[in-house]
Simulated scan of single mutants.
Amino acid sequence: MATAVELRVLVGKLKRRLREQTNLGGLAWSQVSVLGHLERDGPATVTALARAEGMRPQSMGANVSALLAAGLVSGSPDPGDGRQTLLSLTPACHELVRASRAAREDWLFQAIQTRLAPKEQAQLAGAVELLKRLVEP
């Protein structure tokens, strides 16, 4: 049980450190989460995004409005239901996401290289394989 607690706390700290490396122009984390959904799952309606985030469509509408105003998402009519709008990432947003991901990976790479001895780096690589087994079905 102690290992599970320590791992949960440690993963939380790592997530926070990686978030610190993210440079998405001062977006709220709820907005960043919307961008993540659109990147992973493709175009979606406000209603679908609200459901995925567990929030009311009105609240999601405010997030989407800010992302539209920032030029990070664009909307087009849903071919299955013209009353709905499908939201997708703009090319500028794809580049911003790519650059942010690269910054986080670079920070992590540098931290591993400078803080861990070669033997420890090998141990970490083995631990990553074990962690994969915890999360894969």
Results as ranks from 00 to 15, higher is better:
Pro79Cys: 10
Glu120Gln: 14
Ser30Glu: 15
Val64Phe: 03
Pro79Ser: 05
Gln123Leu: 14
Glu136His: 08
Ala122Glu: 14
Ala28Tyr: 08
Lys13Glu: 05
Leu7Trp: 10
Glu53Trp: 03
Ala117Lys: 14
Ala48Val: 00
Pro57Gln: 13
Pro118His: 14
Gly12Asp: 05
Arg115Ala: 14
Ala2Phe: 10
Ala70Arg: 14
Glu120Leu: 06
Leu124Ser: 09
Glu39Leu: 13
Ala117Val: 01
Asn63Phe: 11
Leu27Trp: 00
Met55His: 07
Leu38Gly: 00
Leu134Trp: 02
Gly26Arg: 11
Leu96Asp: 00
Arg101Leu: 13
Ala52Tyr: 06
Ala127Asp: 10
Ala44Gln: 11
Gln123Cys: 06
Val5Cys: 05
Arg40Val: 07
Asp41Ser: 08
Val34Trp: 09
Ala28Pro: 00
Trp29Asn: 09
Ala62Thr: 12
Leu67Arg: 07
Gln121Trp: 03
Leu134Arg: 05
Gly42Ala: 07
Asp78His: 02
Leu116Thr: 03
Leu87Phe: 09
Glu39Gly: 09
Asp81Leu: 01
Thr45Lys: 12
Ser74Gly: 09
Ala2Trp: 12
Pro79Val: 04
Ala62Phe: 07
Glu20Phe: 02
Thr90Glu: 02
Cys93Ala: 15
Asp78Ala: 06
Ser74Lys: 14
Gly80Leu: 14
Leu96Gln: 11
Glu39Val: 04
Ser33Glu: 14
Thr114Pro: 00
Asp81Gly: 02
Val5Glu: 03
Glu20His: 09
Met55Tyr: 04
Leu49Arg: 07
His94Met: 13
Val97Thr: 03
Pro57Glu: 07
Gln113Met: 09
Gly71Arg: 01
Leu131His: 06
Ala70Ile: 01
Ala69Pro: 03
Pro118Asn: 13
Lys13Cys: 08
Leu27His: 01
Leu68Val: 02
Glu129Thr: 13
Lys13Asn: 09
Gly82Cys: 03
Ala70Thr: 03
Arg104Gly: 05
Ala111Cys: 00
His94Lys: 12
Gln121Arg: 15
Ala122Arg: 15
Arg101Met: 02
Ala2Glu: 14
Val97Trp: 04
Pro57Ser: 10
Ala102Glu: 15
Gly54Tyr: 05
Leu108Ile: 01
Arg56Pro: 03
Gly82Lys: 12
Arg104Asn: 08
Gln58Lys: 11
Ala111Leu: 06
Leu49Met: 12
Ala52Gln: 15
Asp78Thr: 00
Met1Asn: 02
Ser33His: 15
Pro79Met: 08
Pro137Val: 09
Val64Gly: 01
Gly126Asn: 06
Asp41Gly: 04
Leu87His: 07
Ser30Pro: 01
Pro137Ala: 08
Leu27Val: 01
Met60Phe: 02
Ala4Ser: 05
Arg56Asp: 15
